[in-house]
């Protein structure tokens, strides 16, 4: 019973972090938000679901290491080294973004009962959280200009996928989780390299400059 409370509390925290990410105006706080979300989610199987065994533990440890430390370090370093302003540049304003996020979260909460996905015995919060986090990631990807915010959007998107994975914890082998993690890491790694190149080529990290590469 207590584990269900912890689970729900963590999931609510994750949703709150989503909202915070949508409203964050500084790059570094955005990076930290995503990292914090990653850490919370990495701990979930251990503290809330009571997973035992070597493999879940390994997944938790690696996720913590990659999402909590390695990726934030990479991104913060990229922010430091590239000569850009530290503010997030939104295409859709902060307030409308938060409202959109809230709307989607609300819709997900009301509609998740209908979805025929496997329901988690511990609570009904998992599915709406996953949808909300996915959408937040997408929103950051589409509604923010700079390349770093896109990387973070990608990271939060992956967090959403991870939450979905919780529903299938018994069914999906840990290896798949690790695989997804590897994908994300490689993705971020590549993005930070691209960042470097965009910065050098266009003297900015504005992804809109990439439109110049259109045929």
């Amino acid at each position: 019973m207590i584990s269900m409370y912890i689970l729900n509390a963590v999931l609510v925290l994750v949703i709150l972090l989503n909202m915070y990410a949508l409203g964050a105006g500084r790059m570094s706080s955005l990076v930290r938000t995503a990292a914090m979300q990653g850490v919370l989610l990495a701990l979930l199987p251990e503290i809330a679901l009571g997973s035992r065994g070597l493999m879940p533990f390994a997944v938790t440890a690696i996720t913590l290491g990659v999402k909590g430390m390695l990726i934030p370090w990479l991104l913060l370093r990229a922010l430091r080294n590239t000569n850009v302003k530290k503010e997030v540049e939104p295409l859709i304003g902060f307030m409308p973004s938060i409202l959109l996020g809230a709307l989607v979260t609300g819709t997900a909460l009301t509609l998740s009962g209908i979805l025929s996905a496997p329901r988690h015995p511990l609570g009904l919060m998992v599915m709406p959280t996953a949808i909300s986090t996915l959408f937040t990631g997408f929103l950051l990807l589409t509604a923010r200009v700079k390349a770093v915010t896109q990387a973070i959007g990608f990271l939060i998107l992956e967090n959403g996928i991870y939450v979905f994975g919780l529903l299938l914890l018994a069914a999906v082998p840990a290896l798949v989780e690790l695989g997804i993690l590897l994908d994300v890491f490689v993705g971020i790694f590549v993005i930070s390299i691209i960042l470097h190149h965009i910065n050098r080529t266009f003297d900015s990290m504005d992804t809109r400059s990439l439109a110049a590469l259109k045929e």
């Binding site: 509609l111 209908i114 997408f138 990807l141 589409t142 923010r144 439109a211 259109k214």
Partner: peptide, 28 residues
Amino acid sequence: LHGGKSQIYILYMLLILLILTLSIFVTA
């Protein structure tokens, strides 16, 4: 449709995802 902005492309993906999700709701 081919605007050259990565944001727009991701928006297309989002739209497709939304349509697919909605279709699940409709069939359910």
